[in-house]
Amino acid sequence: MKLFNNFNFDRLKNSLTKTRDNILTKINETLSGKVKIDEVTLEQLEETLISSDIGASVSEAIIEKARKLLVNEKDRSVDNIKELIKNELLSILRMGLQQKDKEEFSFSNKPYVILIIGINGSGKTTSIGKLAHNFKKSGNNVIIASADTFRAAANDQLQIWADRVGVPIVKVNTKDPSAVVYEALSIAKKDNYDVVLIDTAGRLHTQKNLMVELNKIKNVIKKFDDGAPNETLLVLDGNSGQNALQQVKEFEKYTDITGLIITKLDGTTKGGVVFQIVTDKKIPVKYIGVGENVEDLQDFEPSQYVEAIFNT
């Protein structure tokens, strides 16, 4: 009869070695008066962070903090260093969430207006299709405003999404996006819609004229309801690097961003620049895009996201 059928000798040996190493390290430190910290691991972790687009300064700060915490830490194993850093990343994301994510969607004031903004090719239209699907699925009456009056065939693209999801879309033959927004909000009010999703043209944050136009759209919405838009979501391409922070800063000058959608996270990119955005701007990440189907928009889960950064 085997008493220890799940006994794993290797594991025991490993943990014993670790314990012995720890003891040896302690003795060494006591003798030399210096705390020994695993610099190789820290450097590897710094590489992981920077390679996720978290940015040099934030990554360095996190590693520095971990180094300080380690001085008082008994367990200095690689796993525990990782754990420390994960916790730090999580606390950054949660800090951002606490600031602005207190109220959930509330439809007391109908319609609930969501303005979608972002640079060219970030995935605004696709995100709108997915958002419309989600809202409809949870039993809301959704209407889409096609206010990208600039891009060739933008109307057609949004129409196809609207058909796919089965929601109406407001298109106006005009070059003025504010006119479309006005029309859509009038219809939404008259016909008692729950949610209005407004698609806007992609604009680089460096194009001042187009940014001013965004401000104008915001003002038209405010004429309908001073509390609207209830949400202004900035769509960021998950592939983007440090420039994403610049995008947030510029868009923030003309609109009040209430949340972020990070798209294209189904590839190998991590979109880590959000840590800097959350730290500097206290804007929460609301959704992530993970594919081209209507179902592929997920709620942002900080802990899962942080895990993903360390899964290579």
Partner: peptide, 12 residues
């Protein structure tokens, strides 16, 4: 390639 691409550019 988008000039704003971050670290993952090497992989793609």
């Amino acid at each position: 390639v988008d000039s704003m691409t971050g670290q993952d550019a090497v992989n793609s």
